[in-house]
Each structure stands twice: as structure tokens, then as C-alpha cells.
């Protein structure tokens, strides 16, 4: 073993070959059955406290997108004194069964990381944690990066990180929720899709926006739009509709986290 090797990683043997799966012929037809939804989001499955040794964790599933997020911290840091906590976000794509295009997955990981970090940071009261750092690790268990909408993955990643932070009991100004939207433009006119499944086509605009909807619904904390010739009217439509979707997600989250708290409370009083 070379001296310079990073010993913190558990490395596989050097001659490891990634698993290769046979292309499932039956599944190619099912991709076209995508139904065009308009103002609804896809059903979301969420669960908190899935990792026992993390400070907090969450699992989120929206159709093919499966994400797990764990939060570690606040942990002590070495080095100089800091008045507030450092926030570290790290994303990991599944490495098995993928082509060896490492550069590509690294850039996707970076995209996820930077968007989630931008969105999540304003929601956390970092000043309550001096001299420490909070680590957020997002693991993409499954996601179709080729044929599905990447903005929807970003929204899901932001949402799962928010849930894990709530689970960790880290002080939050507000829960950040994120939603993706797609404005389809063609000769027939414009149509808007919440939580799009397919990536945009040439004339479309797609975007993902993060909100803190607790008190003031117009608190945008993260934004990423792709598309050409975006008019101010388009922008308004996109932000307004993303806000509506983010509020829907927030309502769901509120319900679920309160329910999980009630369940735990019930458990605690039963065991007494």
C-alpha cells in the first residue's frame, strides 16, 4: 500500500469491476407512459431517523428518485476559533452499475452540493454553534440522470436535507422546501408542469426554487433556472408556481414530522 493513500477511505481491491446489468427490454416501453400532470406534485414518501448513529437522518422517495441524507454534528473543529458553525454538504451518486464517467458524476455531485448548500444555509441558526461544524451527507441511492429531470432531483435533495436537519434537532429559522417547475413553450402556447419528470426541450424553461414558507411565503433561498428568452412574465409564473408547489411540500412535511413526534411521544409515555 502506498504511503500517500487516503487511509480514511475503505477502498475496494484494485481489480474491482463495477456490476453490469442487462438492459431490461420490457422497461423501455414504460417510459413513454409518463402522464402530463399540471398543478400537482408526484407522491412523496418520507421517513426520518433511518440511520442510528447519525445525529439525524431522513429518507425520501419520489418515483425513481431515492435519497438518503444523514446529518452529523455539531462536531468540534480543529484550528482557529469560529463564531458560528461551518456547514459542510456532500453528495454522493451511486457508483455501482454506472459507466466509468467519473468526471461527469463528480460535476453532478458538485451541482447537487452547491444547490443544497445555498438553499439550506439561510435556514440554520449557525450562530448557536460556535467552534463546530455540521456535516450533511446526501446519498443518491437511485436516480435516472439520463432521462429524467435533474431539477426534480435537486429539489428532492434539498427537501431530504431539510428533513434530516429537523430530525437532528438542529436549530432552524425555518424548514426549507424546494420545488421544481417546467414551463413548456411551443406553437400551441405555454403549459406549466409542477415537479417535472422529463428534462426540458429546446424552447422550454425549467427551474428549481427553494423557499422558507413558514412566515413569509416569498422567502426565496435558492434558485436555478435553465432556458432561453426568459421574460419577466415567465419568471413570475415560474416563481409563483414553484412557491405553490413548495407550500404543498411544506404542508406535507409539517404533517409528517408532527405525526412522527406524536408517535415518539406515545412510545415514550407507553414505556413509562
Amino acid at each position: 500500500m502506498s504511503v500517500l493513500q487516503d487511509r480514511r477511505r475503505v477502498l475496494p481491491p484494485v481489480d474491482t469491476i463495477p456490476l453490469q446489468f442487462k438492459e431490461d427490454e420490457g422497461s423501455s416501453g414504460s417510459k413513454e407512459t409518463t402522464i402530463a400532470r399540471t398543478r400537482t406534485i408526484r407522491p412523496i414518501f418520507i421517513k426520518q431517523s433511518v440511520v442510528a448513529n447519525a445525529s439525524g437522518s431522513a429518507y425520501l422517495e419520489v418515483e425513481d428518485i431515492k435519497l438518503q441524507c444523514s446529518v452529523y454534528g455539531p462536531k468540534p473543529i480543529r484550528g482557529s476559533f469560529t463564531q458560528q458553525a461551518d456547514l459542510l454538504v456532500e453528495a454522493k451518486l451511486p457508483s455501482l452499475g454506472q459507466d466509468a464517467s467519473n468526471d461527469k458524476s463528480a460535476s453532478i455531485e458538485k451541482d447537487i452540493t452547491s444547490f443544497v448548500q445555498t438553499s439550506i444555509t439561510p435556514g440554520i441558526i449557525l450562530t448557536q454553534y460556535p467552534k463546530s461544524c455540521i456535516n450533511i451527507m446526501i446519498t443518491v441511492i437511485s436516480a435516472d440522470l439520463e432521462n429524467r429531470n435533474f431539477k426534480s432531483l435537486l429539489a428532492a435533495a434539498t427537501n431530504v436535507a431539510s428533513l434530516a436537519l429537523v430530525d437532528a434537532g438542529i436549530a432552524l429559522y425555518d424548514i426549507v422546501t424546494s420545488a421544481s417547475v417546467l414551463l413548456s413553450r411551443n406553437e400551441n402556447g405555454e403549459s406549466l408542469y409542477f415537479d417535472p419528470e422529463t428534462p426540458r426541450e429546446s424552447e422550454d424553461i425549467e427551474g428549481v426554487l427553494s423557499f422558507m414558507t413558514g412566515q413569509d411565503e416569498s422567502n426565496i433561498v435558492g434558485m436555478w433556472l435553465d432556458g432561453e428568452n426568459i421574460t419577466s412574465k415567465n419568471l413570475t409564473t415560474l416563481t409563483e408556481s414553484a412557491k405553490e408547489a413548495a407550500c404543498q411540500i411544506r404542508t406535507l412535511f409539517n404533517g409528517v414530522i408532527l405525526q412522527e413526534f406524536h408517535d415518539k411521544e406515545q412510545e415514550a409515555s407507553n414505556s413509562k
Binding site: 487516503d6 444523514s70 468540534p76 473543529i77 480543529r78 454538504v89 456532500e90 458538485k110 448548500q117
Partner: peptide, 20 residues
């Protein structure tokens, strides 16, 4: 779950230092 390697991957967006 085993603790992941911290602040080492290319996906990290922060430049924070070591964990004490």
C-alpha cells in the same frame, strides 16, 4: 452506517478544516 470520509470528495462545496 459507517461514517463517510469527510470533506474529501470532489462533491464538497465547503473548505472547512479538520474534525477534532
Amino acid at each position: 452506517v459507517g461514517l463517510p470520509p469527510l470533506a474529501s470528495g470532489q462533491g464538497s462545496a465547503s473548505s472547512s478544516g479538520d474534525i477534532a
